[in-house]
């Protein structure tokens, strides 16, 4: 029997940007970690770069609706997230891998991803298939029925990615997804990112410029909670000159953009 395509799936989207932030302010504790940030993200793989303490994780948490914005406007998938909005519809379209991925150690990978799929209000009938597909996509098929406490760091990271993609999210937020992955897994992961980025908005937070240079189509650079620079990966590499610090063109571009921003701020 063929799957019936629902009206909601074929309906044209009613928003211009999957992620749209205007003068966004988010607090981390008392500190205003994201301040006056304007950001627009559409379909594609976006790399979120920035020095330590730039507000990357706080921004990711606000986009994942863990933190409520302290000010400004934030719309995800056309739905307002600020104020007392009903987040249920927006959250169904989200996938999120937190920086500190907490899990239930006694669950198997399959049970965990299944539980998350249930929490994401996926229809009962599609859950087993979607779970299997997510586990296969991250290359954990062999370990799908092992308990999570027996997994290595890299495997846990991949299990975290599996739970994030299980509902085919329209906005996928990955906070430091490549930590603990070996070089070969990194290549597979980049391939997976490109595939998902074809029809959804993927935001990958990382401090590894090389990851962004290879896997992402666009770069968002933030510092001290503000947007410093946004453009394509190609444009970032063009920014770097021979005198800038860094081993690759992208790294030189990164340090050049950041240096220019710091000069502008201190001036």
């Amino acid at each position: 029997m063929m799957r019936t395509v629902s009206v909601a799936e074929t309906a044209p989207s009613t928003y211009a940007w999957a992620v749209h932030a205007e003068k966004l302010q988010v607090r981390a504790g008392r500190h205003l970690a994201v301040d006056q940030l304007d950001l627009r993200l559409g379909t594609g793989v976006h790399g979120l770069l920035g020095p330590n303490g730039a507000g990357k994780t706080t921004l990711m948490r606000a986009l994942a609706t863990v933190l409520k914005p302290a000010g400004g406007r934030l719309a995800l998938l056309g739905g307002e997230v600020t104020g007392n909005a009903d987040l249920r519809q927006v959250r169904r379209g989200l996938g999120y891998l937190p920086q500190h991925f907490g899990f239930y150690p006694r669950f198997t990978v399959r049970e965990f991803v299944e539980y998350i799929a249930w929490l994401k209000e996926m229809p009962k009938a599609v859950i087993p298939g979607a779970v299997q597909r997510a586990v296969e996509r991250v290359g954990l098929t062999e370990r799908a029925d092992s308990r999570m406490k027996t997994l290595s760091g890299g495997m846990l990271r991949r299990a975290g990615i599996a739970q994030a993609i299980v509902n085919d999210p329209a906005v996928l937020l990955l906070d430091e997804p490549t930590v603990g992955l070996d070089p070969e897994q990194r290549l597979d992961f980049r391939e997976l990112l490109r595939e998902i980025g074809l029809d959804s908005c993927v935001l990958v937070s990382t401090h590894l410029v090389e990851d962004v240079a290879v896997a992402c189509s666009d770069v968002v650079l933030i510092s001290e909670g503000r947007l410093v620079w946004q453009g394509t990966t190609g444009q970032l590499t063009e920014q770097g000159g021979a005198g800038d610090a860094g081993d690759s063109a992208a790294e030189r571009g990164y340090s050049s953009v950041l240096r220019a921003y710091r000069e502008r701020v201190s001036a």
Partner: peptide
Amino acid sequence: LDPAWELTATMPRTGLPL
């Protein structure tokens, strides 16, 4: 006590009913 609290907090099903 809930190790996956950050994930739970982003789920559509979170809230009083859960």
